[in-house]
């Protein structure tokens, strides 16, 4: 299928990108890697008047350290993220989950910022950044602001970004010393997860000191399994983890679609949380 016509701009800096979008009116949109947007355009499910291509804005790419935080440019590709030595060393969960996104060719073009801004609750990375207590940095005509991941995902395909704001950076705290696991359950390799569970576990003296659990596809936004996280605190054996994981679907509102019913998704959230936490805690 064939995209509808649109105007095209290719800025070379963040300032220019933000300005170009603002001048482009209501139906202007940023184009990141295009791996979600291009299919939507081809299916004629989106009709932008102007696409502002971020592909030639060098400052949006790359990974750097900022003390205890990794700063990842929004236009850093999945491929780059999963191979980046800093990410692998300090944000293993992000690297592991990114390796499961789509397929190699899509990972060459798709970007971390793009998939977060797209905010598909079935995406792998929103739940991961949420579990990592990441922060998202936006730049707009009114300046720069930092949005905690917990406040970023507002609803299905909706974020806290204003229409004229550009996501420029993703900041994730380093998780050195934490165990991690991304459990993705899907029917075929390429399919979206029916449910995905991103677990981060910090152990202390044989028990779980702190666990963070992000859930993909368990509602209209990525979610944290807050009740389970609380119950996991202090768990020191697999049975305790399993009991805590029973709370994983608490407060979720998963959808009904061709790949699963809400009750099945709730069940999977519990099973996968148990498995992910056990693996992350080295108890598996």
């Amino acid at each position: 299928m064939i995209p509808p016509a649109f105007e095209y701009a290719r800025p070379s800096s963040v300032d220019e990108a933000v300005r170009t979008l603002a001048d482009g009116g209501e139906d202007a949109k940023f184009l990141a890697g295009g791996q979600s947007l291009l299919p939507l355009l081809r299916m004629r499910l989106a009709f932008p008047e102007l696409l502002v291509d971020l592909g030639r804005v060098p400052e949006l790419r790359g990974v750097r350290e900022d003390d205890g935080t990794l700063v990842i440019g929004a236009m850093t590709t999945h491929h780059h993220v999963l191979h980046d030595p800093l990410v692998r060393r300090h944000a293993g969960l992000l690297a592991a989950a990114t390796a499961t996104v789509a397929d190699p060719a899509v990972r060459h073009r798709g970007t971390l910022g793009g998939s977060l801004a797209h905010a598909d609750p079935a995406g792998d990375l929103p739940a991961v950044v949420l579990a990592m207590d990441g922060e998202l940095v936006a730049v707009g005509p009114r300046g720069r602001r930092v949005i905690p991941a917990r406040e970023f995902f507002v609803d299905y395909l909706q974020t806290a970004l204003a229409p004229d704001e550009l996501l420029v950076e993703v900041r994730v705290p380093k998780t050195d010393g934490w165990g991690f696991k991304y459990e993705k359950f899907h029917r075929v390799a390429q399919a979206w997860p029916i449910v995905g569970v991103a677990a981060l576990v910090r152990r202390d003296d044989g028990h779980i000191a702190e666990a963070r659990v992000g859930l993909s596809n368990m509602g209209s936004t990525p979610l944290r399994a807050a009740t389970a996280e609380e119950a996991l605190s202090g768990a020191s054996d697999p049975d305790a983890v399993a009991r805590a994981a029973e709370e994983a679907a608490d407060g979720t509102r998963p959808a009904q679609d061709t790949s699963g019913s809400p009750e099945y998704r709730a069940h999977l959230a519990r099973v996968l949380t148990k498995r992910a936490v056990l693996a992350a805690a080295g108890m598996g």
Binding site: P39, M43, R187, V188, A189, Q190, A191, W192, D257, T258
Partner: peptide, 16 residues
């Protein structure tokens, strides 16, 4: 038809 694309109609790939 809810399985109108290859994203929904699950033709297996090599790992499957």
């Amino acid at each position: 038809l809810l399985t109108g694309t290859l994203a929904d109609y699950l033709v297996p790939a090599a790992p499957d």
